[in-house]
């Protein structure tokens, strides 16, 4: 009875997972999305590094099918189910995520996701990269200027097109650079003045001058821009070393003074007394 139930349960789960996999639909526009950069070894290598760091824990080693046992199955990136998808579909799924598959949109930028796609494709010998039809499409060119408005605690990002006019409707993402990843301040679209604002928490710890390292990524159509800048945005902070001061757990050199004094005073005075007796015994000879 139990066994039957178990089998039934597994079947139900399996079918669910299959259905689930089937039904991960990608909107047409995303599905047809293509990289404007040619996939080459360089891209594959950068993709591999990202893969090893962020994807391998679930998807395992490519071509080995040693992915995690999860439901739905993460799958092997070299497998057909992956390779049969379009570049755009892979790009979308990595970015958006679903269920146990994390959403990487905020951790990786679009180019990095393309690098991943390039790496996934490197396991497919028959793959021929589809090129986007860029005829008639204007690729916007623009640059970014950052400033900080301390009256309203807002990071101000200005987009300026190559015609020196502000560019509106640019998707902006701003990050604070951390040791191991970038903290998303927010996403916004530039207004008609070509400006986007981001709230900055004044309580965020900065460096000794109150500086934070800001990364802003911008995208409009096929055009993109990125900039990184250290700016004074918060109160300066000072960081104490975790081992400052004298503690019982400090190194021998940093031992508490009271302990050093007590210890050495006790030991030395006892040994002086011992030596006093030892040398005193020499006096016995005087009387012999």
């Amino acid at each position: 009875m139990n066994k039957k139930f178990y089998i039934l349960f597994t079947l139900v789960c399996l079918s669910f997972s299959l259905i689930a996999q089937e039904s991960w639909e990608v909107i047409a526009e995303e599905n047809d999305n293509l990289s404007i950069i040619m996939f080459d070894e360089e891209l594959e290598l950068s993709g591999q590094i990202i893969y090893d760091n962020s994807c391998k824990s679930c998807h395992g080693n490519p071509e080995k099918a040693d992915f995690s046992k999860m439901l739905p199955e993460p799958g092997d990136i070299a497998s057909e189910s992956f390779q049969n998808q379009t570049d755009g579909s892979l790009h979308y799924k990595i970015r958006i995520g679903r269920g146990a598959m994390p959403k990487f949109e905020d951790a990786l930028d679009s180019e990095e996701v393309w690098n991943l796609v390039a790496y996934i494709r490197s396991f497919n010998k028959n793959y021929i990269q589809k090129k986007p039809n860029l005829e008639g499409i204007v690729i916007p060119k623009f640059s970014l200027a950052l400033s900080f408005d301390e009256n309203i605690d807002k990071l101000v990002v200005k987009t300026i097109g190559d015609d020196n006019n502000p560019m509106s409707e640019v998707e902006l993402k701003a990050y604070i650079k951390g040791s191991f990843g970038n903290y998303l301040l927010g996403k916004t679209l530039t207004n008609e003045m070509g400006i986007g604002y981001f709230n900055v928490d004044a309580k965020m710890p900065g460096d000794a001058e109150g500086k934070l390292e800001v990364i802003v990524k911008a995208r409009k159509g096929y055009g993109s821009a990125k900039t990184m800048q250290k700016m004074i945005m918060v109160q300066p902070s000072t960081f104490e070393s975790a081992i400052k001061g004298r503690h019982l757990w400090s190194t021998a050199k940093q031992a508490p003074i009271w302990l050093k004094v007590t210890f050495f005073f006790t030991i030395i005075s006892i040994w002086l007394m011992i030596l006093y007796v030892v040398f005193g015994l020499k006096k016995l000879k005087k009387y012999s």
Binding site: V277, G280, L284, Y287
Partner: peptide, 21 residues
Amino acid sequence: SLGWANHPNQYKLIKKYFKLL
């Protein structure tokens, strides 16, 4: 034996050291 000669001063000395120890 450190040149022990049963001298009374020697006894005095070792008794003193023994007490200290």
